[in-house]
Simulated assay, not measured.
Amino acid sequence: MLSDLLVIELASVLAGPSVGQFFAELGATVIKVENPRTRGDVTRRWWAPDQTGDGEDDRSAYFCCCNHGKQSVAVDLTLEDGQAVVHRLVERADVVLSSYRPGAATRLGVGASTLRALNDRLIIGQITGYGENDPRAGYDAVIQSESGFTYMNGPADGEPTKLPVALMDVLAAHQLKEGLLVKLIERMQTGRGGVVSVSLLQAAVSALVNQATNYLVAGHIPERMGSAHPNIAPYGTLYPTADGERLVLAVGTDRQFRALCERLGLDDMPDDARYATNADRVEHRASLDAALRSALSGLNTEELLTDLQKANVPAGRVRSMPQVFEQGPAEAMTLRPDGHPAGLRQVAFSGRLAGRPLSPPPQYAEHTRSVLQDRLGMANREIADLVERSVVDTA
């Protein structure tokens, strides 16, 4: 059962920690090992523009996006005694999450070979920037650029633009979740653990999907198109409506296009040779866009969306963040522990294990003492000695 799993999280920032929260949501015990020299995960200090740290609560909005349901233990891995503490936890663990630059984990005594020698059932999930043999650190903004996302993103007449979320980290996290779940199934069959390694770059490239195959198959080099789609029209383009909102269409079939035109009073367009098929519409994108823009500009958003929904024409409004959470399914993805910062669920599928309540994101070193006592059986005297020698930190 996942409720029996012990996960040791040596990762920081977003990709690795989001995997840790994923397992916490599925019932696992997740112990987040943090660095006393930096007072924990660097994201604890990445405050939102409207959020200020009060000196007592170190849980920034960023930190709260992927650290619910965990226990925080502060251990200095640059010290041999600190490594020994983590090794004792690893001996009892099922999964270790790591996001060190290649070579750093070995120097800190938590390399894959070292940890696997302690526990042959252990499964290690590693995230790197460019692969296990490339020493470069992986940062989402750089990976976005290196993987082609930044080049393709932005208005046609504008500069390449970074995406507004760390999507490369998110993609790598999903790849690692999948790999770890597969490895857990394998362990049920063999009794042995192993290593799952994911690079941010390869996770990003795997997500290029049709943009990559447009190039690989047809030699087409994707260029910036704003919100338009290179293979489908009208799909993704934003159109202003009469009440000042913006509407997006996702018309993927000729039938949907005909239904759209009927609702907009453009009855002749589906039979016009320039727009009869998707290929025709892509070729004549500019005139198509002009006609739709003119028709949509005089219509009310809510009424139009209702009408299009009845006609099974995919469409939606462009929502701000407050408007996003006006939707029931979006609100259901939030975590709101009483008296603590809110967060987001990592598990977006339904099932018996999904949707369970989670403890709030931990304060730095909040659980050091309880984990050392309860998990490792350390006496107060032994813990006090580790604290005095700065091997561990307690809240």
Rank of each mutant, 00 (worst) to 15 (best):
L372F: 11
R319Y: 06
Q211N: 12
R88V: 10
T114V: 15
T38K: 13
A286K: 02
I383L: 10
G138L: 00
D338C: 04
A48Y: 08
R88S: 15
Q256P: 05
L184A: 03
M269T: 08
A348Q: 07
G377C: 09
G298S: 14
Y215H: 14
P222A: 07
V170T: 13
S359W: 01
L208R: 14
P314Y: 01
A156F: 02
V248F: 05
L14G: 03
D307Q: 14
Q373Y: 06
T114I: 14
Y100K: 00
T213E: 11
Q51I: 03
A84C: 06
A348L: 15
E132W: 08
A242K: 15
V392R: 01
I383S: 03
A348G: 05
G69I: 10
F349W: 15
N210W: 11
G69W: 08
N35G: 02
A28C: 10
R375I: 00
T43R: 01
P322K: 08
V96R: 00
T78Y: 05
E34S: 10
R274Q: 08
L200W: 06
L305P: 06
P36G: 11
L89Q: 00
S197L: 05
S294G: 13
N67F: 04
P270T: 13
K310S: 12
P135L: 02
G148A: 05
T106Y: 00
M225G: 09
I185H: 15
R375E: 13
A207E: 08
T38S: 15
A74C: 13
R263G: 00
I8T: 14
P36A: 11
E262S: 12
L208G: 07
A207V: 03
A61P: 06
P49I: 06
V205Y: 11
A137W: 05
L216P: 00
E223L: 04
R285H: 12
G339Q: 14
G355M: 06
E91Y: 07
W47A: 13
G328C: 00
N67V: 06
D243Q: 12
D157W: 00
C64K: 10
V324K: 07
D140Y: 09
Q51D: 06
L6Y: 05
P329G: 03
R88Y: 08
L247G: 02
L6D: 03
I185N: 06
G316T: 15
A137S: 13
R389M: 07
M188H: 09
A348K: 01
L344T: 03
P230Y: 03
Y215G: 04
N35D: 12
D140K: 07
G343I: 10
R317S: 15
Q373G: 12
P49K: 04
R136S: 06
R255F: 00
L79D: 03
V217C: 09
G194Y: 02
P164H: 08
A48V: 04
Q175S: 13
V33K: 12
M152Y: 02
E283C: 08
S287K: 01
L26H: 13
G103T: 11
A279F: 08
Y151L: 09
R45C: 03
A24G: 15
L299M: 14
T190D: 07
G252V: 07
A250I: 10
V205F: 13
A290I: 06
V391S: 04
R274K: 12
L266V: 01
Y130C: 01
L6N: 06
V392P: 01
E326C: 07
R37Y: 05
S320G: 14
L308S: 01
F325G: 01
G148M: 05
V209K: 00
E303Q: 12
S297H: 12
P361C: 06
